[in-house]
Design a protein around this nucleic acid. Structure first.
Lengths: 200, 200
DNA sequence: GGCCGTCTATGACGGCTGTCATAGTAGCGG
DNA sequence: CCGCTACTATGACAGCCGTCATAGACGGCC
């Protein structure tokens, strides 16, 4: 979700991308439509053209985009891992955020989490969008675990645990302005994850 | 954080309580000052009297209150546990939310998480308030683990892991409208927690 | 009674928000 | 050149927000 991710694309995709970006730092309330347009360097008039459903639609698409993005990341991690282990995958997933906090000194959060916090109770369509986003994120993780030798039944559960831990630790890390919680979670959860692998 | 928690108290404490309550469901943006006053059945004029620092102060106090509340809960769990084990404590912590979702069919989230998502990047004082809230929550948990036989060095780390897992699973549960993530996390993390106990 | 500190009441203000109405331009097939 | 579709431009609107100014009520204490 770094910069340059959406250059060359059409204005529509740039707006979705920018919305996700802005959601990460201030939540739904602090993310104005005008801000999105400006951040995406898109024409303002295009808003009502591409997103007749208004802010709700834009937020929903941003959330779904984030889900697909996370899934893509996982796939890339798995492909790049020298010798794939569950703890290695988990470390790679977390590393993305520790890096960001280390370089920028301040983290943005997860756009899906922001949508849940701000809209889950008020807007059913957005709630569903966040649910599918988590699902499209959990899927590849569970699949990767299964490929590493984790029994399929447990792979799904462990994937949920991994994502829960990441999201929670990210909250704490943002609060503390420090990567401590993220690194702690990686260290403590690693052995458990690797222990679920069944040698064959 | 159930109803009746703040009856009989002065209007000031009622407003802090109500703020925390409202933060849980819609985040900071959706929580208006007028809403807080109405929810607390407090006089509107008292706002600028008790909270001259405005919304920022009110949110900060609500967050700190939530931290103390969570710590109190943990202490009560520990006292009530028949035979104290780390997994038992963790299950009790999570049970509070599964209960709420089961009865109400819809969960509110954690006010501290809401404050982080909506204000961590914009308001330094609120960010610090969330950090101390997490700290006052983690403290009793780590202490309880140490009392159960977990080496103090690991107790702190495991407490962070537990709270991370709860917060993350709560996000997923709200998104899915289902307790699945919460129960999964309890089941998968339990053995790891109990395994950290050093018999003497 | 007069004063004062604590608390409450109420209306107004400026600013920002999402949304919409209306009009305009660009490009293309005919 | 016409007409059509896709896209953009811009200003206005109603509504809500947090904040503040001002003034009133209550109660104790000299």
């Amino acid at each position: 979700m770094t910069a340059g991710e959406a250059s060359g694309r059409g204005p529509r995709e740039r707006m979705v991308f920018s919305a996700a970006q802005l959601l990460r730092r201030g939540g739904v309330g602090a993310t104005g439509m005008r801000d999105v347009v400006e951040h995406a360097r898109a024409p303002r008039g295009s808003l009502q053209h591409y997103f007749p459903g208004g802010k709700e639609q834009l937020v929903n698409e941003a959330v779904q985009w984030a889900g697909r993005y996370a899934a893509r990341r996982v796939a890339r991690f798995v492909a790049a891992l020298p010798e794939p282990t569950p703890s290695g995958l988990f470390a790679a997933m977390v590393h993305q955020w520790t890096d960001e906090l280390a370089t920028a000194g301040e983290t943005s959060g997860c756009p899906v989490a922001a949508a849940v916090v701000d809209r889950a109770g008020a807007c059913e369509s957005t709630r569903k969008a966040t649910a599918t986003a988590f699902a499209t994120w959990t899927g590849p993780v569970a699949e990767a675990l299964a490929d590493m030798g984790v029994p399929p039944a447990r792979a799904e559960a462990l994937a949920t645990l991994m994502i829960s831990a990441v999201e929670g630790a990210l909250l704490i890390a943002r609060a503390e302005g420090d990567v401590r919680a993220l690194t702690t979670v990686v260290r403590e959860l690693g052995p458990l994850l690797d222990g679920a692998v069944v040698r064959d």
